[in-house]
Nucleic acid binder design. Structure first.
Lengths: 166, 166
DNA sequence: TGCGTCTTCGCATCGTTTGCGAATTGGCAC
DNA sequence: GTGCCAATTCGCAAACGATGCGAAGACGCA
């Protein structure tokens, strides 16, 4: 997404006000390559600005989403994740720990919806692709777990929890 | 997904019991090509079997999902949708009314995650693709709306609500 | 027919998100 | 610098989807 300075311009141009809360959120979102939840952003923002309200985080995220500055992602259950990466990209997601990463994908424009009839006049203007699988950490952990059951080792390789780190 | 008769076999084989509630749900899911929510299934099931509990619908859907008989889909906010179509397919979704349709897609195996490095050892084993856009009904409705604002016509073409019809 | 286990179902609860309204504050005009 | 108005913040309550729990009931085998 755009830099905090640029967003400031855009907001002003639309008659929206620049508040310290918004500036903090602009900055956090601009600086992350993760896909934080509202709660994660709230936690990060609270560090820089104690007293900021979760309500404000949600509100600002809604505005940024409707302006197209961030994308709102939904993977199965759990809270929504927000993606400030404005480039044309897709996602990979670990089935085990839920971690998400951006990935560039080639060949997207060669995808062909086969049964055009069943589309029944539907006009697609965008496509989102999610690769499902297992991340390196969880793959390693499961190998370790398998070894443990056979050899009674006590290595504790815990999978990453999907912390935002925003 | 499999026929109610087949599912009955499978359930019995696993020591699970065949209840009238489950039979109704098997049948409803088998007969739809929609992507109903738990609530929608609950409504449809209540017609055939008044008194059935929403709790039971959720429970059965969870079982069928973990058995791989239905897929659980998540599109943005809102309740989960359940897809009994067991074939290899993907989805189109209308931005305006939320309607979902299955679509076969060619060229999926030619997709190439470009930056293999950024995958960092991630091993994908499945991919889900969603085309976003506008369905024929909503396209028509919006044309009508545009015409209305310029010519003051009083045609009321309402977009489809995403009823499950399951 | 009887018994053990699986199921159902209602209620309470949880996590995420939104509505509402009072108090506050940014930003422009003067 | 001051004042004003609209935009914003923020806390609380509540909507919403989904799940945990436990008592009562039903399936299915012997």
């Amino acid at each position: 997404m755009r830099s905090p300075a640029e967003l400031t311009e855009v907001f002003r141009a639309q008659g929206l006000k620049i508040t310290p809360q918004r500036q903090v959120l602009f900055s956090l979102l601009h600086d992350t390559d993760q896909h934080p939840t509202a709660e994660m952003l709230f936690a990060a923002a609270s560090d820089r600005m104690p007293g900021i309200s979760l309500r404000t985080v949600y509100q600002t995220l809604t505005e940024l989403t409707s302006m197209g500055e961030v994308r709102q992602l939904a993977f199965g259950s759990g809270p929504a994740r927000f993606d400030p990466n404005g480039s044309d990209h897709h996602h990979v997601r670990c089935r085990t720990c839920g971690a998400i990463r951006d990935v560039d994908v080639g060949g997207v424009d060669r995808l062909e919806p086969l049964d055009v009839e069943s589309l029944g006049g539907f006009e697609p203007d965008a496509v989102s692709i999610v690769f499902h699988g297992r991340c390196a950490e969880c793959a390693r952990a499961s190998v370790a777990a398998a070894a443990r059951t056979t050899t009674t080792t006590t290595t504790s390789t815990t999978p990453n929890t999907p912390t935002g780190g925003a």
